[in-house]
């Protein structure tokens, strides 16, 4: 029950409210205004720039959708969003699989649980810049993994992911999975721990094997967590920028261009602010396509829970 109701019977002095009741609103106002500007004004502002003839500097001559047209006609943008789809698919599935496996392993009453967890989660604490830089060294054919394996005697071993335009995106996928599967693990583990012990025991009494118990009983009951992990990781994927900068800088050539890289490049390297803003709007749109249905789903589920008690 909220305090609003509790105080409804008190005398009202100031514009229908007691002066004291205005304090919260006054304290909240700066944050509200800042957030409002950040979310709404900035979006509309950027949308407006995207519809303007801005090039090296922002200008406000209205040109309608022509920036969007030239964006979608651009081969590099084409590569950028194709990469995004490709990357997202493998990155999300990969880190969920690894994360789920690790969570299930840790869930088998292993010794030193917190040590394992600490190891799998630490990459999340460091920046994508740090991770990307270190992995770019590992992918370096002269000094990294390739050199190591060759030094063992396998002299024609080839592992030059990051510098091969056909495979460079895999370098980003692998590093991305390495960085964030710990996150999936943490969420899955929390989910596994919350499953009702009775239904598991019931399955065991029925003679289900461990594998079957997981597949038929435990995993279905944590389905919402799969969705939550996927949604968070799609967001990561759409915003992917630092990792690519540190790993490949979008190269070789333009083979690992991503939408976020494209926005940065057009705005600050090529002086095509209008089209860069159009690309930023497309990123926002992509996020909305994922997040709006998801939040509607969450609201629907919450309402259903309330109705069912």
């Amino acid at each position: 029950m909220s305090l609003e109701r509790a105080s409804a019977t008190r005398p009202r002095l100031f514009g229908g409210r007691r002066l004291g009741e205005l304090v919260p609103i006054i304290v909240l106002a700066p944050s509200l205004i800042a957030s409002f500007i950040y979310v709404f004004v900035f979006s509309i502002w950027t949308l407006y720039i995207a519809m303007s003839n801005s090039s090296l500097l922002p200008s406000y001559g209205f040109v309608g959708l022509s920036n969007f047209e030239s964006l979608w006609a651009n081969r590099r943008w084409n590569i950028a969003y194709t990469n995004l789809f490709f990357f997202s698919g493998f990155y999300i599935v990969g880190s969920m699989l690894v994360g789920l496996l690790l969570a299930i392993l840790i869930d088998q009453k292993v010794r030193g649980e917190s040590v394992w967890r600490t190891i799998f989660l630490y990459p999340l604490a460091v920046s994508f810049i740090v991770t990307g830089t270190v992995w770019s060294w590992l992918y370096n054919p002269v000094d990294g993994i390739q050199a190591l394996v060759r030094s063992f005697g396998w002299t024609d071993f080839s592992f030059a992911l990051a510098s091969d335009r056909n495979y460079a995106i895999w370098a980003i996928i692998i590093t991305g999975i390495w960085q964030s599967s710990g996150f999936a693990m943490a969420l899955f583990l929390a989910g596994l721990r919350s499953v009702d012990g009775d239904i598991i025991r019931a399955a065991q009494i029925d003679g289900a094997s461990t594998f079957r118990t997981y597949r038929k009983v435990i995993l279905p009951s944590i389905a919402p967590i799969f969705l939550a992990v996927a949604v968070v990781q799609i967001q990561f994927a759409i915003k992917t920028f630092d990792l690519v900068v540190a790993l490949t800088r979008g190269g070789p050539g333009v083979s690992t261009t991503f939408p976020a890289i494209y926005v940065y490049d057009l705005m600050f390297q090529r002086g095509q602010i209008g089209e860069g803003a159009a690309a930023a709007i497309m990123m926002l749109a992509a996020l909305a396509v994922v997040l709006v249905p998801y939040s509607l789903f969450l609201v629907w589920r919450r309402n259903k829970e309330v109705r069912n008690g």
Binding site: P58, Q235, A280
Partner: peptide, 13 residues
């Protein structure tokens, strides 16, 4: 909503 905003949207403003 601020949680989800991509930084790119805010660059020019």
């Amino acid at each position: 909503l601020g949680v989800f905003m991509p930084g790119q949207i805010a660059l020019m403003p």
